[in-house]
Simulated scan of single mutants.
Amino acid sequence: MNIPKLQVQTTQARLGHQVDGSQQTIRQPKAEWSIQQPAAEMNIRQRPGKLTIDQTKAWNNIDLKSVAKRSDELAADGRQLLLEGIARMAREGDELMKIENGGQPIPSHGEENAKLDFTFAPGGLPAYDLVDLSYEAASVEMDVEPQKPVIQVQPQKPQHTYQPGKVSFQLEQHPDVQIDWKV
C-alpha cells in the first residue's frame, strides 16, 4: 500500500537593510580676547648734587692772590727782612767796634748797603693738580606703581551640527511555504 506522503518545502523570508550614516560636525571658534598693559606710574626725584671747585692754589701759583693771602705773605716777608736787618746791623756794629783790628769797615758797609738786591718770581701756570674738585651726589627717590593688565575675553559657543542617519529595511525575499502530496 502506498501511503501518500506530505512534503512541505519552506523558504524563509530575507530582510535587507541600508544604513546612511549620521553626520556630525563640531567647530569651536577661538575666543576673542585683548590684553592691554598700562604703563607703570613712575616718579623720580633727585636733588642736584653739590660740586665744589677750589682753585685758590692755582691762582696763588700765578701770583693772583687774595688780599688776605698777600697781606700774610708781606707780613712774613717784612718780619724776615726785619730780622735780617737787625742781624746785619749787629754784625756791622761788631765790625765797627773792632775797627782797631784793621780793615776798612765803613767803606765796605757803604758798598754793601748801596746795592739793591731783589728777586721777582712770578708764579707758574696753573696745573691740574692745583685745582681741588669734590662732588657730593644727592640721593635719588623713586616711586614705582605697577599697573595690572586689562584682559578682556569673549568666549565663543561651539558650533554643532548633527544630521541623523537613516536605516531602511526592505524585504529581499518573501517567505514561501509549498505543501505537496507525493504518492
Rank of each mutant, 00 (worst) to 15 (best):
A75N: 14
R88N: 09
G165F: 02
R91C: 04
V144Y: 07
S139H: 05
I86H: 03
F120C: 07
G124F: 03
E111F: 15
V144T: 10
P126D: 03
L82Y: 14
V131L: 00
S108V: 12
K157L: 14
I86Q: 02
I151P: 02
I86R: 01
K115S: 10
G110M: 14
G123F: 01
K166M: 08
Q159E: 15
Y162V: 04
Q152P: 00
E111T: 09
K115C: 03
P126E: 02
V153N: 08
Q163E: 14
P122H: 01
D94I: 07
P149W: 07
A76Y: 07
G103R: 01
G102A: 06
V167L: 10
P146A: 10
E84Y: 03
E92I: 09
Q152I: 06
V140H: 03
L81N: 08
V150P: 01
A90F: 09
D143C: 05
M97N: 13
P122W: 04
G93P: 01
E112D: 14
F169E: 05
P122G: 04
D117F: 07
Q170V: 13
D117Q: 12
A127W: 00
V150S: 12
L133R: 02
R88L: 09
L125P: 02
A87P: 00
P126F: 00
A114P: 00
T119Y: 05
P107D: 04
A75C: 08
E136N: 12
I106W: 03
A75Y: 11
Q104D: 15
D132M: 09
G93T: 01
E136G: 08
V167I: 15
Y135M: 02
A137M: 05
P126L: 02
L83R: 06
K166W: 02
Y135S: 01
D143I: 13
L83K: 04
Q104E: 13
G110P: 01
G103A: 01
